[in-house]
């Protein structure tokens, strides 16, 4: 890539992607609660309203269902809205429009329309916001054919995947972990895309495949670095997209390492870990497994307020290290 590469935060990378998308295509506009002069609850839209005006950076009333529906209707009729939910938890208020309308409209109408809407969901725990502002609901939407669901884990991917999402003709749901917003990393200037539906091998290794999503990718990489000194060589696969899932990259990795662990923040059961595990169990990689598959996910509770309890609710680096060590050493 020739473009100049700078260090940007994850939030800045998203903001830059939205600005580029608006520069490139006058159909692109932003909608959401307090995304104008306030700059968004997490300052992701920042000062975009000053640069693009209130007609393209639209503050909505606190009406998640109606707002999502307006975005769907605008996308259906030729615009390219990027709709920000203030917290991913508020998707619960808009599920009707996301699940029944955005996801199904093309199908129900026999391919006569498309709904190129992008929805952004600040997600996850770790900010002391307690049970109604800290959930990881990506698997809910990942269960719905017609949606694409992505979880960029780095500033580079956040920008490139958002630009890919805007260019995509179908509805794309982006789950952004709130603790990643301040994470810095190299981001090239200008336009580039990171494909939706492609996982990324973030670290190569021989002994164990860790499939991680979102903030757990960095935690898995930190765990892998610590395990290296113990002679355990971990491969970290950043899933990046949960629908449509890049099965082949995971299958190939497991065939190489013969061990699989899934690490994700959402509640452990009935989620991404179950899907990845079952996918491997159904694949030719099953015969290569030397040990049972391990899932490391969130506790079966709402997210608590107390910071110690909050941390204990989701996998932390020491948890990953212990589970990985046990798996490779055959303790489990």
């Amino acid at each position: 890539m020739d473009a100049m590469v700078r260090e940007l935060s994850y939030a800045q990378a998203i903001q830059e992607a939205m600005a580029i998308a608006m520069d490139m295509d006058e159909r692109v506009f932003l909608m959401g609660e307090d995304i104008g002069v306030y700059g968004g609850a997490f300052q992701v839209t920042g000062d975009l309203v000053e640069r693009y005006g209130a007609d393209r950076v639209i503050d909505t009333p606190i009406s998640e269902l109606g707002g999502a529906g307006v975005a769907v209707g605008a996308a259906l009729t030729g615009m390219r809205p990027i709709f920000e939910f203030q917290f991913s938890d508020f998707a619960t208020l808009a599920m009707e429009q996301i699940v029944n309308q955005a996801a199904k409209m093309r199908f129900m109408l026999g391919g006569e329309v498309s709904v190129p809407v992008v929805m952004r969901f600040p997600a996850g725990s770790g900010t002391g916001a307690a049970a109604q502002h800290s959930q990881s609901l990506e698997a809910w939407l990942g269960h719905v054919p017609g949606l694409k669901v992505i979880q960029p884990a780095t500033p580079y991917d956040a920008k490139g995947m958002l630009l890919a999402a805007v260019a995509d003709p179908d509805p794309v749901m982006i789950f952004e972990h709130k603790l990643l917003y301040k994470m810095k990393g190299p981001v090239p200037e200008g336009y580039y895309t990171v494909p939706i539906g492609k996982a990324d091998i973030r670290r190569e290794g021989r002994d164990l495949t860790i499939v991680a999503t979102s903030i757990m990718v960095q935690k898995a990489l930190d765990a892998a670095a610590a395990l290296e000194s113990e002679g355990i060589d971990v491969e970290v696969v950043d899933l990046r997209t949960i629908r449509p899932m890049d099965k082949q990259t995971v299958i190939d990795s497991v065939k190489k390492t013969s061990r699989l662990m899934c690490v994700y923040e959402a509640v452990k059961t009935l989620g991404i870990g179950a899907e990845v595990s079952a996918m491997i169990a159904e694949s030719e990689a099953f015969d290569y497994l030397d040990a049972p598959i391990v899932r490391l996910g969130g506790a079966e509770t709402p997210i608590p307020y107390n910071p110690d309890l909050e941390k204990a609710t989701v996998p932390q680096i020491p948890d990953i290290i212990t589970a990985a060590r046990d798996l490779v050493k055959g303790v489990r």
Binding site: L65, G66, G67, A68, G69, V70, A71, V72, G73, A74, A75, L76, T77, G78, M79, P81, E96, Q97, N100, Q101, M105, M108, L109, V113
Partner: peptide
């Protein structure tokens, strides 16, 4: 005709979105 809708009220915000496009 952007479509009939099986969800009661489902088309109302969508119409507002189409009007925003207009």
């Amino acid at each position: 005709n952007l479509g009939a809708n099986g969800i009661v009220g489902g088309g109302i915000p969508i119409a507002v979105g189409a009007a925003l496009s207009s």
